[in-house]
């Protein structure tokens, strides 16, 4: 798995070099490689299908425009997801959506995730069929604060490591971990609350 990632990283650097030499086909290969993970992420952040497509397209165009600033010692996936995350921050700032901030200050991380587990009651998470659970999960995700939703999506939908997420957001790994745990707990509570008590 690690070797796969390394090989993929080398392949990315090679593609970037080709693009910088004027090979447009190499950039198309980059798009094809990253379009699915990018759309999976962006669609969960903006929700509207057309908007998700527009934002993802804009992210790739920005990546192309600043490709000469990409440094091959860093992972290309990290670089392009950072562009996407920053783009969403700008996008929401322009639209003046204050409630959903992705650049939540680090010091706001509290100890909410260190509460004692107390699951004596029956849980809808256990009772629902997988498809029902996934539908409820998508709905609950919409209600997560954007800075937590982003990390939840990266971790569970995109399968990123805590280290990768920390590099993208430029925050400590411990903070990322706390926020992911916090997001998961909030999701669980939202799911339990949104469904009829069993």
């Amino acid at each position: 798995m690690v070797e796969d990632k390394k090989a993929s990283g080398l392949e990315d650097s090679k593609l970037v070099r080709k693009v910088l030499r004027g090979d447009r086909g190499a950039f198309e290969a980059i798009i094809r490689k990253y379009q699915q993970p990018m759309l999976n992420y962006v669609s969960r952040m903006v929700r509207e299908r057309e908007m998700a497509l527009d934002v993802s397209q804009e992210v790739f165009l920005r990546a192309y425009a600043s490709l000469s600033t990409y440094r091959p010692e860093y992972k290309f996936s990290t670089w392009i997801f950072r562009i996407a995350s920053n783009f969403l921050i700008d996008h929401w700032r322009k639209k003046k959506i204050v409630a959903v901030s992705l650049d939540q200050p680090v010091e706001n991380d509290g100890d909410e995730c260190f509460l004692q587990v107390a699951d004596e009651t029956a849980s809808v998470v256990r009772e629902l069929e997988l498809k029902e659970l996934q539908a409820s999960l998508e709905a609950a995700m919409d209600r997560l604060p954007a800075h937590l939703r982003e990390l939840f999506v990266w971790r569970h939908v995109n399968g990123m490591s805590y280290e990768e997420m920390a590099e993208i957001k430029n925050i400590p790994v411990g903070t990322v971990k706390n926020r992911v745990f916090q997001a998961k707990e909030m999701m669980r509570v939202l799911l339990e609350e949104s469904s009829c008590p069993v």
């Binding site: 669609s43 587990v117 699951d119 569970h156 669980r188």
Partner: peptide
């Protein structure tokens, strides 16, 4: 109680990991 808590969180993570792609 802790077994149930573990089961719930495990199921939630599995469901999230298998969400249909865009």
């Amino acid at each position: 109680a802790c077994r149930r808590a573990l089961e719930v969180r495990k199921r939630l993570a599995e469901a999230a990991e298998h969400l249909p792609p865009f």
